[in-house]
Lab assay of single mutants.
Amino acid sequence: MDTYKLILNGKTLKGETTTEAVDAATAEKVFKHAANEHGVHGHWTYDPETKTFTVTE
C-alpha cells in the first residue's frame, strides 16, 4: 500500500488529508467520495510523482 494525499482548494473548505490505498484509482475514489460529502466539486488533478490529488473549485 502507498500513501496518497488530497489537497482541497474549495470555495468554503480548504485542507489536506491522506489515505492508504493499493493504487491511485482506489485513492481517487476515496478522495472524490470525501470531497462530495463536504460539498467540494471542481477540477481534479493528479501528480503521480508526489501521489497528490488536488481539487480546485
Rank of each mutant, 00 (worst) to 15 (best):
E28A: 09
Y46Q: 00
N9M: 12
T18P: 01
W44I: 03
G15T: 15
N36Q: 13
D47Q: 06
N36K: 14
T56H: 07
E57H: 05
H41W: 11
K29W: 08
E37G: 07
K11F: 13
G39R: 06
W44R: 00
A25P: 08
N36M: 14
T52S: 05
H38M: 15
L8P: 00
A35I: 09
E37L: 14
T17M: 15
L8H: 03
E49P: 08
K11P: 10
D47E: 10
E16Y: 14
T17C: 15
V55W: 03
G42W: 09
L13R: 08
G15A: 14
T19I: 15
K51D: 00
A24Y: 12
I7A: 03
Y46C: 00
T45Q: 09
F31M: 02
T52G: 01
K11W: 10
A25R: 09
V30P: 00
D23K: 02
N36D: 11
T17K: 11
V40S: 03
Y4K: 03
T56I: 07
K14Q: 11
N36V: 11
F31D: 01
W44L: 03
N36P: 02
V40A: 04
T54C: 07
F53P: 00
A25Y: 09
K32H: 08
T19G: 03
G15C: 15
V22W: 11
E28F: 15
H41G: 07
V55P: 00
Y4P: 03
E20C: 13
T17A: 13
A35C: 07
E49H: 11
G42M: 03
T56Q: 07
I7N: 04
L8F: 12
H33F: 10
P48N: 07
T45V: 08
E57C: 08
H41Q: 13
K29M: 11
Y4L: 03
A25T: 09
T52M: 03
G15K: 14
D23E: 03
V22I: 13
A24P: 09
Y46F: 08
T17F: 15
Y46H: 01
D2C: 14
A24E: 07
G15F: 15
K29A: 13
G39W: 04
T56R: 05
H43P: 06
A35M: 14
L13H: 14
K11E: 10
L13F: 15
H33M: 14
E20Q: 14
L6P: 03
E20M: 14
Y4W: 04
P48I: 08
L8G: 02
E28T: 03
M1T: 12
I7T: 04
E20H: 09
H41V: 14
W44V: 02
E57V: 07
H33Y: 09
A34R: 13
V30Q: 09
N36T: 10
K32V: 08
D47W: 05
T54G: 02
T26N: 08
F31L: 06
G15W: 15
T52V: 07
P48C: 05
L6N: 02
H41C: 11
K5W: 10
P48F: 07
D23F: 02
G42Q: 02
A34P: 01
E57T: 06
M1K: 13
L13I: 15
V55F: 04
T56E: 08
F53Y: 05
G10I: 09
A27R: 00
I7F: 05
V55D: 00
H33V: 13
T54Y: 09
I7Q: 04
Y46I: 01
F53V: 01
D23R: 02
D47F: 05
T52Q: 04
T3D: 05
D47K: 04
T26M: 12
A27W: 01
E57G: 04
D2G: 08
A24V: 11
E57M: 06
E16W: 14
K32P: 01
F31E: 00
A27Y: 00
E28G: 05
A21M: 02
G39Y: 05
Y46V: 01
I7V: 10
T45W: 06
T12Q: 11
V55H: 01
A21H: 02
K5A: 05
M1F: 12
K14L: 08
E28K: 09
K11G: 08
L8N: 01
K5V: 11
K51M: 07
K11C: 14
D23P: 00
V55I: 08
A21R: 02
E57F: 06
L8R: 00
D2H: 14
P48Q: 08
V22G: 09
G42P: 01
W44H: 01
T50G: 05
T19L: 13
T12L: 11
T12C: 15
T50A: 07
V30K: 08
T12K: 12
Y46G: 00
V55G: 00
K14D: 05
L8V: 12
F53E: 01
V40H: 03
H41S: 12
T26C: 08
H38Q: 14
K11I: 15
T17R: 12
K14A: 07
V30H: 12
A35T: 06
Y46S: 00
V30G: 04
G10D: 03
V55K: 01
V30T: 10
T56V: 07
N9F: 11
E49F: 11
E57S: 06
P48R: 06
K29Y: 08
L8I: 15
K29T: 09
F31V: 01
E49K: 10
L8C: 14
D23Y: 02
E37Q: 13
A24N: 04
K32R: 15
V30F: 14
T18L: 08
T52N: 02
F31K: 00
A35Y: 06
Y4M: 02
F31C: 01
T18N: 05
K14I: 11
T50D: 05
H33W: 10
T18D: 04
H38D: 05
T12H: 14
K5T: 15
V30A: 09
A34T: 14
A21K: 01
A35F: 07
T12M: 12
A27I: 01
N9D: 10
V22A: 13
T50W: 05
V40K: 03
A21D: 01
T45Y: 08
E20D: 10
T50S: 10
E37I: 13
G39L: 05
T3S: 07
T50V: 06
T12S: 11
D47G: 02
D23Q: 02
A34H: 15
K51P: 01
E20I: 14
F31Q: 00
E37F: 11
A25N: 08
V30S: 06
A27S: 01
E49L: 12
T54N: 04
D47C: 09
K32D: 02
T17P: 03
H41Y: 14
K51V: 02
A21G: 02
H41T: 13
E37M: 14
T17L: 15
V40G: 02
V55T: 02
I7D: 03
K32F: 07
E57L: 06
D2F: 13
E37K: 12
W44K: 00
F53K: 00
T50Y: 06
L13A: 09
Y46N: 00
A34F: 15
I7K: 05
T56G: 04
E28W: 14
L13V: 14
M1G: 08
T3K: 09
H43G: 06
F53C: 01
K5G: 03
K51I: 02
E20L: 14
E37A: 13
T54V: 07
G10N: 04
T26A: 14
E37T: 11
T56M: 06
T54S: 05
H38T: 08
T3Q: 08
N36F: 13
W44T: 01
W44Y: 02
H33N: 13
Y46M: 01
F53L: 01
E16K: 07
T56N: 08
N9W: 11
H33C: 11
T12F: 14
T50N: 10
V40L: 10
E49D: 13
T56D: 08
H33A: 15
D2L: 10
A27H: 00
E20N: 10
P48T: 07
H43K: 13
F53M: 01
D47P: 00
K11A: 12
L13T: 11
E28C: 15
L13Y: 15
V40P: 01
K32C: 10
T26R: 05
N9K: 10
K5S: 05
I7M: 05
A21N: 02
